[in-house]
């Protein structure tokens, strides 16, 4: 078991240190994404180093990329795209998936059957492939990326939430709410959601990671964020030529992707728990 320290006895929450590390890294990237334009030492598109794939130095903390642009600035600005697009996409995907899933579980019947089959059909199309087709057809913009990613990940969130909600739906307290005459929105929002919110958040974390990776994958293929701006996936892609030289330009964005995805999972697995001690 992971040793945990009570965050604050007053509030009675317990938060393990592993979760805190995860939260710290996420907050770090979140803040960086917000304030990046104000703190970057060099403009992202400007060639500032005469050498390419430059090493770490006091002038270029994280070296320079394949054109001699400052890597620190590019990674910090990349956080904006990676964190922002993924967060927007995962919020849309999980919100629509969970609401539809709970509704399907509660309503049942043909509504459930029709919606489930339709989303199953969508689920059967490989994510990267449909992403490629859409972006190739409509062209790449941030809105298109967010919507495409959200649509790709909605069926999974739907399936997950529906499976959880179906179990809760058989509980007597749902029957009690129905015989009271409650409407569907009260049942899904007030009776079911609080009982599935834990797993749903865990799923949101996982899905966020998938989206970060898919976005990075699309950018790696050149279909994501367009130059001169670049998200982390694009940064890895454009600097992949630096791999034989061990250039920080290719390693740093990879580490950034890893640190964000891993810490999201650490946080989700170690969310603060409320201590409920019967007689304390």
């Amino acid at each position: 078991m992971i040793p945990s320290i009570p965050v604050s006895q007053k509030f009675g929450y317990r938060f393990s240190w592993v979760g805190m590390i995860g939260l710290t890294i996420i907050l770090f990237w979140g803040i960086m994404a917000l304030i990046a334009p104000h703190i970057i030492p060099h403009p992202v598109g400007e060639i500032v180093d005469e050498d390419y794939f430059g090493v770490m130095s006091s002038r270029f903390w994280l070296g320079s990329d394949y054109l001699g642009r400052d890597m620190l600035s590019r990674v910090l600005m990349g956080a904006r795209y990676t964190v922002g697009i993924s967060l927007a996409a995962v919020s849309i995907a999980c919100f629509s998936g969970v609401v539809l899933g709970m509704t399907a579980a509660v309503v049942g019947g043909w509504f459930d059957a029709a919606l489930s089959r339709f989303l199953d059909a969508m689920n059967s199309i490989p994510g990267k492939l449909s992403g490629l087709v859409v972006v190739a057809a409509v062209g790449s913009s941030i809105t298109v990326l967010v919507i495409t990613l959200a649509v790709i990940y909605t069926p999974g969130a739907y399936r997950f939430a529906r499976a959880l909600a179906v179990n809760i739906n058989t509980m007597d307290y749902i029957t009690v709410a129905r015989t009271r005459g409650e409407g569907i929105f009260y049942i899904i929002g007030s009776e079911i959601l609080p009982n599935i919110i834990g797993p749903v958040l865990a799923d949101l974390g996982l899905r966020f990671v998938f989206i970060v990776l898919l976005l990075s994958g699309l950018s790696f293929l050149g279909l994501g964020v367009q130059p001169p701006f670049a998200d982390w996936g694009a940064l890895v892609h454009e600097n992949v030529g630096g791999l034989p030289f061990g250039a920080p330009a290719v390693i740093v964005p990879s580490l950034a992707i890893a640190s964000l995805t891993i810490s999201v999972n650490l946080l989700i697995d170690n969310l603060p728990k409320k201590i409920r001690d019967r007689s304390a």
Binding site: M171, D172, Y173, V176, T179, R180, G181, E191, P194, N195
Partner: peptide, 18 residues
């Protein structure tokens, strides 16, 4: 609905734990 109420056997499943 109000005038006829039903009380179930298992209070554990009849009361929302959250």
């Amino acid at each position: 609905l109000r005038e006829m109420q039903i009380v179930f056997q298992y209070a554990d499943t009849a009361l929302n734990p959250e």
